[in-house]
Design a protein around this nucleic acid. Structure first.
Lengths: 94, 94
DNA sequence: TTTTGACTTGTCTGTATTTGGCTAATTTAA
DNA sequence: TTAAATTAGCCAAATACAGACAAGTCAAAA
């Protein structure tokens, strides 16, 4: 999973323990572990907190987080590519 | 919304009433109305039923349905484009 | 101008999914 | 072999959502 992989990188780089991050997010360690492995989805506010803790751009982590949510939606769909193409053609309006 | 717009087209083309389709899906008319206007999400099985009723390819409607779900996820996100780009680069593995 | 029929709006509720906590098991490091 | 860190599994609380129902709008017909 996109976000989890990056969180693990950052955590190891900064030499934090899962339980320390869990404490900062006010969840228990197993829960943090699940987020890191992509077994559970983080909430938006948690991602925002994590970007502060790790001192990276909020948009970096939020992008990975959103990508993961999209991926969960389409991962078992054979029509995934065409659905994404439709969305893209309507996104240019932003 | 993608699916709703197409459903309305098909319904008008075949001259069905909302209440007839609602009956076939075993939901009430307001519910069908909401699906058509994109105020509510159809379930996968409903989309499949509708493709049979309207005699169109199941994949056509399912693609629109999935596109709508993706769109709901990203519509308020400024980072939508980059998140989609990430997903796309990982989708080529199918 | 009433009535009728098609569709929409708003609200409520039961169900299903999500989120998080707890305990136990497993892995890793010393 | 311990001790610490991480993961797995299960249960309860919180949340989201499909669907029902009642009441509304808007046409066109009577």
């Amino acid at each position: 999973m996109f976000l989890g992989k990056r969180l693990k990188e950052l955590r190891e780089q900064k030499e934090f323990l899962q339980r320390q991050l869990a404490a900062k997010l006010e969840i228990d360690t197993p829960m943090y572990s699940k987020i890191e492995r992509g077994e559970r989805n983080a909430k938006r506010e948690q991602v925002q907190k994590l970007s502060k803790i790790f001192e990276v751009e909020e948009s970096e982590l939020l992008t990975l987080w959103l990508a993961g949510k999209i991926y969960d939606l389409i991962k078992d769909e054979s029509i995934a590519k065409s659905a994404i193409a439709i969305v893209q053609s309507h996104i240019h309006e932003f």
